[in-house]
């Protein structure tokens, strides 16, 4: 209902925007009736909510396609980028965060802290522009943007994926690094770790069985949060790299006052958020048997 109300607040006449400047009253009325916008708002809401429950999110005012098909068309690009970014992020964050926690205040720790601060503070779109300038412009190694499906051209798919995934991955990775560092530090200080050391386990055994496992819980939480953020469309990065994801679709829908598409996209983001939270909770019980009780 909140999705619906928020979208209705967007001013402007969607039919006028869809038709452009030259149209007659008859076409206008016909489109108005077809889109259901001549009905009272309450009725519009119930008919939308009823259909949404059955998976029918309506038809785009602008293109005439169904919202589900538009979302389905964009979903592979968004999923690809989100999964690739989270992999880049974890590859950066887990070693860097762990190393700096194992040697607090060492050179490694300071370098890691500085790097993660830089990663959090750098504007994504600026990093994207600089990477395009260097790797697509000066060196000419990678295409500056676009997306091809994996099945059509695996090499082209990978070449186009590298830069956007690195940009979003570095930012998410910097956030995760800080969490890994503090959770590993916290786990290292726990009593059971001291006991494990006292009973003569090797450092590796202590680390794998007693530290890492306890440090995993916060890592799972923050990775879930980051994944939800990446799946909801990294609008700016998508625009810079001409990546046809859901963020770009939502932005275009706002600009065109395309209510059904915008409602559909936001509803999907909310569902993604809930599903990820559920998966995180389930992972909790798998990692930490104490929670099952």
């Amino acid at each position: 209902m909140i999705v619906f109300a928020l979208v209705q607040l967007v001013p402007g006449d969607p039919i006028r925007l869809a038709l452009g400047t030259r149209f007659d009253q008859e076409t206008y009325d016909a489109l108005l009736a077809r889109s259901g916008l001549d009905q009272p708002l309450v009725q519009q809401y119930f008919s939308w909510a009823g259909r949404a429950l059955t998976g029918d999110l309506g038809v785009s005012f602008r293109s005439g396609e169904t919202v589900t098909s538009q979302i389905a068309e964009r979903l592979p690009a968004t999923l690809t980028l989100a999964v690739a970014s989270i992999l880049v992020a974890l590859v950066i964050a887990i070693p860097l965060g762990t190393l700096s926690a194992l040697r607090p205040r060492s050179v490694v720790d300071r370098v890691a802290t500085v790097l993660s601060q830089i990663g959090i503070s750098v504007p994504e779109f600026w990093m994207a522009i600089v990477l395009i300038l260097v790797f697509a412009g000066t060196l000419g190694w990678l295409p500056s943007g676009g997306y091809v499906p994996l099945t059509d051209d695996p090499v082209g798919w990978l070449r186009r994926l590298v830069m956007p995934a690195v940009v979003t991955g570095v930012v998410s990775g910097s956030v995760i690094t800080r969490f890994v560092r503090s959770s590993v530090l916290e786990a290292l200080g726990a009593d059971h770790v001291r006991t494990a050391q006292a009973k003569g386990l090797t450092s590796r055994q202590v680390f794998t069985w007693h530290v890492l496992r306890n440090a995993l819980l916060p890592l799972v939480t923050i990775t879930g949060v980051q994944l939800a953020y990446l799946l909801s469309g990294v609008v700016v990065v998508e625009i810079v790299f001409s990546w046809p994801g859901l963020g770009q679709l939502a932005l275009q829908a706002v600009q065109a006052r395309d209510y059904p598409v915008l409602q559909g996209a936001i509803l999907l983001f909310a569902v993604v958020f809930l599903v990820i939270n559920l998966v995180v909770d389930l992972l909790y019980t798998a990692i930490d048997p104490r929670i099952r009780r």
Binding site: L6, V7, L9, V10, P11, Y229, S232, G233, V235, V236, G247, A250, L251, V254, Q255, R257, L262, A265, I266, F269, A270, F273, L274
Partner: peptide, 13 residues
């Protein structure tokens, strides 16, 4: 639960 940038975009719209 709303994606931050999209919420801001919606408010600006």
């Amino acid at each position: 639960a709303f994606p931050a940038v999209l919420l801001a975009i919606a408010v600006l719209a």
